Amino acid sequence: MAATAPRQGLPPRLLEIDGLKVHFRTDDGWVRAVDGVSIGIDRGETVCVVGESGCGKTVTAMTVLKLIAMPPGRIVGGSILWQGRDLVPLAPAEMQSIRSKEIGIVFQEPMTSLNPVYTVGEQIAETLRQHEGLGRRAALDRAAEMLRLVKIPNPQRRVHDYPHQFSGGMRQRVMIAMALACGPKLLIADEPTTALDVTIQAQILDLMAEMKERLSMAVMLITHAMGVVAETAQRVVVMYAGKVVEEAPVGALFANPRHPYTQGLIRSIPRIDRAATHKVRLEAIPGTVPSLLNPPPGCRFAARCRHATEACREAEPPLRELAPGHFVACIHA
Rank of each mutant, 00 (worst) to 15 (best):
Leu187Asn: 02
Thr277Glu: 07
Ala5Pro: 15
Gly133Asn: 09
Leu221Met: 00
Cys182Ala: 00
Ala315Ile: 15
Gly251Asn: 03
Ile80Glu: 01
Ala308Glu: 10
Ala69Glu: 15
Val289His: 05
Gly19Ile: 02
Ala139Cys: 00
Ala323Lys: 08
Glu45Cys: 09
Arg99Pro: 12
His278Pro: 13
Gly51Phe: 00
Ala333Leu: 04
Lys57Gly: 06
Arg320Trp: 06
Leu319Glu: 05
Gln203Asn: 12
Thr58Trp: 06
Thr223Phe: 07
Phe301His: 11
Val229Cys: 07
Glu283Met: 06
Ala91Arg: 15
Asp161Tyr: 10
Pro153Glu: 00
Leu87Asn: 00
Gly135Phe: 12
Phe166Pro: 01
Arg32Asn: 11
Asp197Arg: 11
Ala143Leu: 01
Leu134Val: 01
Pro184Leu: 09
Asp28Leu: 15
Ala195Ile: 05
Ala202Tyr: 08
Val250Met: 08
Leu282Asp: 04
Ala311Cys: 09
Arg13Cys: 15
Lys185Pro: 00
Glu321Ile: 09
Ala2Asp: 13
Pro116Arg: 04
Phe301Leu: 03
Val47Gln: 04
Arg148Leu: 14
Ala61Gly: 09
Ser268Asp: 06
Leu15Lys: 01
Val37Arg: 03
Val245Phe: 11
Asn115His: 05
Leu322Ile: 13
Gln123Asp: 05
Ala248Ser: 11
Ser38Lys: 12
Thr262Glu: 07
Phe327His: 07
Pro163Asp: 08
Ala144Asn: 13
Val106Glu: 08
Asp206His: 10
Met178Lys: 00
Arg300Asn: 12
Ile222Glu: 05
Arg173Trp: 07
Glu109Val: 02
Pro89Asn: 00
Asp206Glu: 09
Ala189Gly: 04
Glu247Cys: 14
Val117Trp: 13
Met1Arg: 14
Val198Asn: 11
Cys48Asp: 03
Glu314Met: 15
Gln165Glu: 01
Arg304Asn: 01
Phe107Glu: 13
Val150Asp: 03
Gly168Glu: 11
Met175Ala: 03
Val37Met: 01
Ile105Thr: 02
Leu207Gly: 09
Tyr240Asn: 04
Arg171Ser: 10
Leu140Thr: 02
Gly19Ser: 07
Asp161Leu: 10
Ile98Asn: 07
Arg306Lys: 15
Glu316Thr: 14
Met220Arg: 13
Gln108Trp: 03
Val59Pro: 09
Leu81Thr: 03
Gln172Tyr: 06
Trp30Gln: 06
Ala302His: 05
Pro6Asp: 02
Val250Phe: 13
Ser291Pro: 06
Gln108Lys: 04
Gly36Asp: 05
Val59Ala: 03
Ser53Gly: 09
Ala179Asp: 06
Leu205His: 12
Met170Trp: 13
Leu20Val: 06
Ser113Asp: 02
Thr127Asn: 14
Ala252Ser: 14
Gly36Arg: 06
Leu14Tyr: 12
Ile41Lys: 00
Asp42Glu: 12
Pro12Lys: 04
Pro6Ser: 06
His326Lys: 03
Lys66Asp: 12
Val245Ile: 08
Gly51Pro: 02
Arg148Glu: 14
Val47Glu: 11
Val237Lys: 05
Thr262Cys: 08
Ala302Pro: 10
Tyr162Met: 09
Asp273Asn: 10
Gln234Val: 01
